[in-house]
Design a protein around this nucleic acid. Sequence first.
DNA 1: CGATTGCGTTAGAGCGCTCTAAATCTTACG
DNA 2: CGTAAGATTTAGAGCGCTCTAACGCAATCG
Lengths: 332, 332
Amino acid sequence: MSRPTMETVAERAGVSRALVSLVMNNSSKVSEAKRQAVLHAAEQLGYRPNLHARNLAQARTKTLGMIINDIHNPFFAEVVYGVEAAADDYGFDVLILNGGRDAERERRAVETHLQFQVEALILVGPKLDNDDIVRASAVVPTVVVASGRDNPGADTITTDDERGAALAVQHLVQLGHTDIVHIDGAANISSRARSHGYEKAMRSLGLEPRTLRGGDDEADAEAAIVDLAETDSMPTAIFAFNDLVAAGALSTLEAAGLRVPDDVSVVGYDNTFIAELNHMSLTTVNQPRHQMGQLAIRTVLERIEDDRTEPTRIDLAPTLSVRRSTAPPRKA
Amino acid sequence: MSRPTMETVAERAGVSRALVSLVMNNSSKVSEAKRQAVLHAAEQLGYRPNLHARNLAQARTKTLGMIINDIHNPFFAEVVYGVEAAADDYGFDVLILNGGRDAERERRAVETHLQFQVEALILVGPKLDNDDIVRASAVVPTVVVASGRDNPGADTITTDDERGAALAVQHLVQLGHTDIVHIDGAANISSRARSHGYEKAMRSLGLEPRTLRGGDDEADAEAAIVDLAETDSMPTAIFAFNDLVAAGALSTLEAAGLRVPDDVSVVGYDNTFIAELNHMSLTTVNQPRHQMGQLAIRTVLERIEDDRTEPTRIDLAPTLSVRRSTAPPRKA
DNA sequence: CGATTGCGTTAGAGCGCTCTAAATCTTACG
DNA sequence: CGTAAGATTTAGAGCGCTCTAACGCAATCG
């Protein structure tokens, strides 16, 4: 009752096991007659090659292991699509494991992938610390996507957060804003680069930066906005650490009786699903996520196939998606 | 330079390969001394068991294959967490493949999983048609999650969409609404049950149902709402096929100068991320997604371990999450 | 003190496949 | 018709692991 093997198919087709193997890997040196016979037998038996056996015999798996920080987060989903499309092109399977926003789980996921003998590891927004990544990349080519850190040993694909922040600032300034507050990402990994970019851009335009502590979700924005309202120091524009924080800003501003963008303009970051919703319509900094995924595969493949060994670091340029949450400031 | 094998470890620890195997599977019949020696050797060599070899030898993989309709969709993410948590409890690994909203891709994903010899298939919101599912479930235990269809051969975990729709209607009626329009999901798989539930609930409360053709995204809502506005037949409440359609309704209503919930109440379905955003704050029907994931595992495990063979069908009760998009109708 | 028990350990076959080297069959040509 | 060159096909080893059966040895017992 167990699944048919190559042996079974060979017998049925009246050929040797080796011949079946050749057919399954569609080798050109098989006569048409036998090929048909084998395919027919396989079909009838519902034969399916056993990947474990194949991988063992070949000593390679043509499989890549991807770990996603959090499957909830739609930001990463787009990266996944990029990765899959590119992997497909090169004939690799991609196994996905969910990190669940937890370093320990990610560590176990790495372990699982390694036991599956994946040929490379793609870490999307990993929570792992440097040591973990170094350790992993010593075993198998590893590429880190969308995590600003410097990852010794691994390749890195990022977008330039400083530049992204500058885009936001420039856009607001062009609209006529001069009083622009930034709500940062607190301990978040990309927070530093974004705040820094914001501050640098402000200063270079002769404006005084004002950064408030935020975080990475709606509630974090609320505190900051309430503070601005209470101290009567509401700016004409707010640049938030990410779209979710921007969403929090939107609702808190509204609750305070302020209209977006009439009273206050709001800019987010990441161009997630949220920003696209008509009801939110957030102007936001866009990262080329699909491309990031594709580059991750290319990069890692250079190691596998062309055995490059020095680490690569690709830093892509973000763009700005302008929507309805930004407008010129109300005339004073 | 290739990875160390059991043989290598055995040699280093001065024991036989079989003994190393016993240690790796932490068998109780190994002397403490040898166990330590083996673990130490393995540690030093950075040894990692080769799952392919193990699976081949054991003729079982302790691995489940999951296919997600669309990794973008946060609705499914929660199911994934439920599945993973339960699978963890039973010591199974879960391999995730992305269906990408495409039946053909899903078909390939099924194939890949089968070649990996997964012990069961978990299809989350599959696009596959009945035949595909029958075929898959003939090979390996299969459970379909969140897809209303009747899946001969496979187990099914759903929530009762009719009841969910009724919850929405009842809530609106309790608030005092009598003129409630439903924007349906067009060809979407769950659309029928939801519309039917809506119509049944309306009639049983002595109200006249009014169903408009919608779809599954924001744009689909727009057409319907514009139509209502133009024919001057705007109801006091709208029950949308899902949250995204509800979001479309929100923005279109607003664009038409109507306020939510003051002029029109809106109810969504699925309690996705969107609904939770403060700025949207959608009243919506909630499906116990995490639980659905867990039940999927339990169900499928009954087949694997207790070899049940008759198909099971579990239909869970939805709940209503009330937020700020619903309120009593404006006094006429 | 020889036989028995049982624990700890190991030899060796086998899981399903690929791959190399060799065998077999065709075909073409002098 | 004989033979070399191709074109097909196959035997068989080996991938890294598990598992059964058997082995060695110390402790136990009559």
